[in-house]
Each structure stands twice: as structure tokens, then as C-alpha cells.
């Protein structure tokens, strides 16, 4: 009887044998990167709204350049092309978002070379780069072409005497120069200014201006579980707390916390750069340490540093100690005592 039934049923194709587990969550690197790209779309829309053609030009050229450079590098090293994981696309968009709108295309491409060829592929490609490639690209450009990298467009700023003025500096840059020269802040803040900053009607890199759009992207990534709240939460919280203290101590010279949160590259950095998986800690505790560290460094640079903005440097500095944070925050293994207790007993 058994024999007959065998003949009727199709022969099972037992061709794949592996170790357990034989089930998978379905997550993939490609899907994670795609989610990041989707999360960046609102910010791209805001960039195009405020900066027009320049935003599109920079984003497209950076994406194309990054993917091409990645493919070239992989080919030169005799490896798989590896562009299917979309990580080069993410790097391209993020780098573009960190550039001022008027930057020439060729300079952006130079940034892409730094980001992909030097910061990523020289270290072995995805997974092996110690520093965020897009930030390396931005910082390399900032140091190589300081003038072009700080050439902003014009925006309308509220003035304390009631006459609006045009400025060609970023809000943070303006604040810094004014505090340095005149010893006071250049403007006062009301709800309208805050709304302006939140929506993105300000000067800055193309992707960092609209806190709202970045926030929407962050919420999407949280929902998709691409990121957890730990890094951005601790980063933003630290900046808020730090600036709050400074503001209470001396409101004449220090910007209020809501301005610090909404201006500059903080939102972009906290939501998209500090959460880069490869270069940030793997443990929850580590992510919190990382976020707090980024927050403190950002505020120190903004308040006392030579640059008006410190997000890029803060994240890169914290990237460098990520392995140490991982080691220090390794969870206590189940069934083991904490190290110091072991020693005590």
C-alpha cells in the first residue's frame, strides 16, 4: 500500500541541506537600505521645494556617482559588484543632503569618491567601514573646499526691531558670528520663527533644513524597526538638556533649546547618520551611550568650537569609539555573574 501511494505523490525535491534554523524573519540588508531610502524621500521633497533644481541635481549626481564608484571599486578588487544591497544609494543621498545647494557637481563627485572609495571600500566594503562614509565625504569636502561648502543662499530672518532682513548665512552661523563680534544673539524667537525652522525655510545643507520631513522619515524607520529610539532619542535629549542649561545660565549669549534642536544638521544627523548600523554600537545600552556622546560633542562644538555646527564631527568622533562602547556595554551573559561580582566573590 505504501508503495502505491509513493508512486502517486510527486517526488520531493530534497536539495537544500543546512544547519538550523530553517526559518527566517525575512529581513534583508537590501530591504533595510530600501526603507532608509524611502524614509529619506520626505526630506528630498522638502529639499526640492526649497532649493529647486539644485537639490535634485546634487542628489542624483551623488547617487549615480556613489553607485558607479562602488561598482568600479568592487570590480577592481575582483569581488561581486555588491551594489544590489542599495547601501551606495543611501550613502549618495545622505552625502547630497549634507551639501550646500550651490555646490558644483564635480565637487559633489569628489565627495562621493572620498565617501565610497576611501571611507568604505578601502576598509573592505559594507560592514567593515569604521566611519560613516557620507560624513567622511562631507568633512573631506568641508576641509578641501571651505568656501564652496559654506556658500549658502538667501533667506529671510526675523529681526528684533521688526524689520525682516535677508541673510546669506545659516541660522547657527549667524548666531555664532554675532555672539563672537557683538556679544549678543542676532535675533529673537517667536512661534513664527520656530515654524519656519521646523518646515525648513532656512539656510543650510539641502537635506537638513526641514526638521519635520526628517522627523516623518524617522517615524517611518521606527515603525519598520530599521532603527530603535535609543540613539536619536538620547542624542536629541542630550542636546536639549545641554542647551537648556546653557540658556538658563545666560540667555543673552546662548540659543534656546528648541532652536538648537531645529536648526542645523542635528535632525538629519540624529535620525539618519548616528543610526547608521555599521558604524554605531549594537547593544541598546551602547546606542544610548553613543547618542549621549554625540549630543555632548555637538553642543561643545556649537558653543565653544570654531565651526558653527558640530554634528558631523561629533558623529565621526563617536564612530571611532564604537568598538569600545560595544565591548563596554556587552550584556551580562545568562547564567553569569557580573565581572566585578565574580572578582569580589
Amino acid at each position: 500500500m505504501v508503495e502505491e501511494q509513493k508512486a502517486e505523490t510527486p517526488e520531493p525535491v530534497l536539495n537544500v541541506v543546512s544547519t538550523s534554523p530553517h526559518a527566517h524573519s525575512g529581513a534583508s540588508v537590501q530591504r533595510i537600505m530600501l526603507d532608509v531610502v524611502i524614509a529619506l524621500m520626505p526630506a528630498l521633497a522638502a529639499a526640492v521645494w526649497f532649493f529647486g533644481w539644485d537639490a535634485l541635481r546634487l542628489t542624483l549626481s551623488c547617487v549615480i556617482a556613489c553607485v558607479a564608484i562602488e561598482a568600479l571599486c568592487r570590480k577592481a578588487m575582483g569581488r561581486d559588484l555588491g551594489i544590489g544591497d542599495l547601501s551606495a544609494v543611501v550613502t549618495g543621498i545622505l552625502l547630497a543632503f549634507n551639501l550646500p545647494p550651490a555646490l558644483p557637481t564635480w565637487m559633489a563627485v569628489v565627495g562621493c569618491v572620498f565617501a565610497v572609495a576611501i571611507a568604505k571600500q578601502l576598509f573592505g566594503g559594507i560592514g567593515y567601514n569604521p566611519f560613516n562614509p557620507a560624513l567622511i565625504g562631507r568633512v573631506a569636502l568641508l576641509i578641501s573646499f571651505p568656501v564652496a561648502m559654506t556658500k549658502w543662499s538667501e533667506w529671510t530672518i526675523p529681526s528684533p526691531i521688526g524689520i525682516d532682513a535677508l541673510s546669506t548665512a545659516t541660522p547657527l552661523g549667524l548666531a555664532k558670528t554675532n555672539v563672537m563680534s557683538a556679544g549678543t544673539l542676532p535675533y529673537h524667537f517667536d512661534g513664527g520663527t520656530m515654524l519656519q525652522l521646523l518646515m525648513g525655510d532656512q539656510n543650510g545643507c539641502i537635506g537638513e533644513v526641514s526638521a519635520l520631513a526628517l522627523f516623518i522619515g524617522g517615524a517611518y524607520m521606527l515603525w519598520r524597526k530599521v532603527i530603535s529610539w535609543h540613539t536619536p532619542g538620547c542624542y536629541l535629549g542630550t542636546v536639549a538638556a545641554f542647551s537648556c542649561i546653557l540658556w538658563i545660565v545666560n540667555p543673552e549669549k546662548n540659543l534656546p533649546p528648541h532652536f538648537h534642536l531645529l536648526a542645523g544638521g542635528l535632525m538629519l544627523g540624529a535620525i539618519f547618520m548616528a543610526t547608521d548600523m555599521v558604524t554605531s554600537p549594537v547593544t541598546r545600552k551602547g546606542m544610548m551611550v553613543f547618542g549621549v556622546g554625540c549630543g555632548v560633542l555637538t553642543m561643545v562644538i556649537r558653543r565653544w568650537g570654531g565651526y558653527p555646527e558640530g554634528v558631523s564631527f561629533a558623529i565621526l568622533l563617536m564612530n571611532s569609539i564604537t568598538p569600545l562602547i560595544n565591548r563596554a556595554t556587552a550584556p551580562r551573559v545568562f547564567g553569569h555573574q557580573r565581572k566585578n561580582k565574580e572578582k569580589a566573590s
Partner: peptide, 16 residues
């Protein structure tokens, strides 16, 4: 069969 796993003889020997 089609072995899917670490390319190492000891590991492959242990799977099936």
C-alpha cells in the same frame, strides 16, 4: 544534496 552553509569541511561534514 545542495549544502548551504559555511565553506569549511568540518562544518560541512557535520551537516547531514
Amino acid at each position: 544534496f545542495q549544502y548551504n552553509g559555511v565553506a569549511d569541511c568540518t562544518a560541512a561534514h557535520a551537516v547531514g
